[in-house]
Amino acid sequence: MSVVAENLNWGVKRKAIVLGVSLTVAPGETLGLIGPNGSGKSSLLRLLAGLRRPDTGRVEINGQDIAQVSRKALSRQVAFVQQSVATDTNVTVVDVVRLGRTPHRSAFAGWSEADETSVAEALDRVDMASRRKQAWQTLSGGERQRVHIARALAQAPQVMFLDEPTNHLDIHHQIEILRMVRDLDLTSVVALHDLNLAAMFCDRIVVLQDGAVRVCGTPHTVLTRETLRDVFRVSAYVDISPYHSQPHIRFSAV
């Protein structure tokens, strides 16, 4: 499914958070959102996923204005993985992942074999199948993040929005999670802090600055010394040698 945003504006009181953002995500593409803290990445993700309504502008998924789609119908197409979720409820890993099946079930429907298969496959994909009966409260931050992604996968979405999905993960699981997202047969938009991970796993990258799109393109065209200096205020060397399929960034002290 494609995602199209047209001139999105959103703010709180008199402060503009998202400012005139237009972008297109092609079916099956992985689009990265990068930018300094406070640049509007998380707010833009929520607008694209329909969790917030823009003050002006519109979002279309597969050619349909999401403002005209019911929340339940939209949740059959779209999954959102946020940075972290806290709960004091005594639940197990599999209980959390089963919540992903809610949009596909009616109020009186029983738990089906298809539901169980979706949950089992989602746990396998994030390497948490052996923890399915473990209590949520005993998980580490990284393990909880993997369970959140499993819940989203159990939802069987065609579009996935992920807000810093690699937070709290060790480097092995950072790479595994982003490789899995990239290889899924769906459209994905992912906000990331790590610029090298964005270069490795995103087909295209949008750089946000002060709520607006500064530049959009492939990692090679976006991740330049000039952009890193002007937007992120860092000095860096960008290796575009044939030994790297994507730009590799090395930061230097300033």
Rank of each mutant, 00 (worst) to 15 (best):
D185L: 09
V4Y: 00
I177Q: 00
R131H: 15
D183E: 15
L186T: 07
G38K: 10
A212K: 09
G20A: 12
A79C: 11
H148T: 07
T224Q: 13
L197D: 04
E164S: 08
G11S: 14
E121H: 13
W136Y: 04
G142Q: 09
G28H: 03
G100T: 06
S70N: 05
R52K: 11
W136R: 03
R132D: 07
L208Y: 08
E29D: 13
A79H: 04
Q82K: 06
D65N: 15
R151H: 04
A79T: 05
L31H: 01
Q134H: 11
L223Q: 05
L99H: 12
D230N: 13
M180N: 03
R182T: 08
A122H: 07
S2A: 11
S241W: 00
G141M: 02
T89P: 00
R14C: 03
A107D: 06
R131C: 14
L192I: 06
C202D: 11
Y237K: 06
I249F: 08
L44W: 03
G50D: 10
M200A: 15
N196F: 06
S112E: 09
S252I: 13
V96E: 05
I66D: 09
T138K: 10
S22F: 01
A107T: 12
R101F: 08
T227H: 13
G141F: 01
V21K: 03
N62P: 01
C216R: 02
S106K: 13
I34M: 03
V222T: 08
N9R: 13
L162H: 03
V126Q: 05
S43Q: 07
A114Y: 01
H244A: 12
W136C: 04
L23C: 10
R151W: 03
L153A: 04
H172T: 14
S140R: 08
T24D: 11
V85E: 14
L47I: 02
G100Q: 07
R71W: 00
G20M: 06
G110A: 14
Q145S: 05
